[in-house]
Amino acid sequence: ETGKELVLALYDYQEKSPREVTMKKGDILTLLNSTNKDWWKVEVNDRQGFVPAAYVKKL
């Protein structure tokens, strides 16, 4: 879809709370919100949640 910003997972991340999502290094995720410098909201496999901003980079 146009207008979607994507990020690349630089590291594996295992969710530690229900508000977070698990990702694997190399995953491409849809970026939903990056206003917080530490935690970015992403969508992966129809799930939305937060990942550490340092673990992903914008494509």
Rank of each mutant, 00 (worst) to 15 (best):
L31P: 01
E20W: 04
E1C: 15
K41M: 15
K57P: 01
V21W: 05
K25P: 03
P18F: 08
M23K: 01
L29H: 03
N45Q: 12
F50H: 05
D38M: 14
V56A: 03
V7Q: 01
T2M: 13
Y13F: 08
M23L: 09
E43S: 11
Y55H: 06
V21Y: 04
N36L: 08
K37V: 11
Y13Q: 00
P18I: 10
T30D: 05
V7F: 07
E43A: 11
E20I: 04
A53L: 02
E20A: 07
V7W: 07
P52W: 03
N33V: 08
L6W: 13
A9R: 01
K4T: 11
Y13I: 01
T2Y: 12
T30M: 12
K24N: 08
Y11W: 10
V56N: 00
F50S: 03
V51F: 01
K25W: 04
V21P: 01
L6T: 08
D38E: 12
I28M: 06
L59S: 04
F50E: 04
K37R: 12
E15N: 07
I28C: 06
N36M: 09
K4S: 10
L59G: 04
V44C: 11
T2S: 14
P18C: 10
K4F: 13
G26D: 05
N36G: 10
L29P: 01
D12W: 04
E43D: 06
D38H: 15
V7M: 05
L31Q: 00
Q14R: 10
L32S: 03
V51R: 00
K25G: 05
T22K: 04
V56D: 00
S17M: 08
N33D: 15
R19S: 12
D38Y: 15
K25I: 06
R19G: 15
E15F: 06
S34T: 09
D27H: 05
S34R: 08
A54H: 12
Y13S: 01
Y11N: 09
Q14A: 12
G49V: 04
K57A: 12
T35I: 09
N36K: 07
G26W: 07
K24F: 12
V21K: 02
L8D: 01
V21D: 00
E43K: 10
K57F: 10
A9V: 10
K58E: 06
P52R: 04
W39H: 03
E15S: 15
L59C: 13
K24M: 09
S17K: 07
W39L: 03
M23T: 03
K58G: 05
I28P: 02
L31A: 02
L8A: 05
S34E: 14
W39S: 03
L6M: 10
V44N: 15
G3Q: 15
W40Q: 01
S34D: 15
M23W: 02
G26N: 06
W39F: 07
E15K: 14
E15R: 14
S17T: 12
R47D: 03
A54M: 12
P52Q: 02
A9P: 00
K16F: 05
K57N: 06
P18K: 09
Y11M: 11
L29T: 01
G3T: 13
K37H: 12
K16M: 12
Q48L: 07
P18S: 12
S17R: 09
K24Y: 12
D38R: 14
K57T: 14
D46E: 12
L59F: 09
G3S: 13
G49H: 02
K16C: 11
N36I: 06
S17I: 04
D46A: 11
N33W: 07
L6S: 07
Q14L: 13
K25T: 07
R19M: 13
L6C: 11
W39G: 00
V7R: 02
G3P: 13
S34I: 06
S34F: 07
D27Q: 15
K16W: 04
L31W: 01
L8Q: 12
E43M: 11
V7D: 00
D46S: 11
E5Q: 15
P52I: 03
A9Q: 01
R47E: 05
L59R: 03
D27K: 04
E5T: 14
T2A: 13
L32P: 00
G26V: 01
W40T: 03
K41R: 11
E1F: 05
L10M: 09
L31G: 00
D27S: 08
D46C: 13
D12L: 02
G3M: 14
K58N: 07
G3L: 12
D27N: 07
K16D: 06
N36H: 11
Q48A: 11
K16H: 08
W39P: 00
Q14N: 14
K58Y: 09
I28S: 03
L59Y: 09
N45L: 12
V44Y: 15
P18Q: 09
V56G: 01
T35P: 04
T35W: 10
A54E: 09
G26M: 03
Q48H: 08
G49D: 00
M23N: 00
G26Y: 06
V7N: 01
S34M: 09
R19F: 12
T2K: 12
R19L: 13
E1W: 04
V44Q: 15
G3V: 14
Y11G: 05
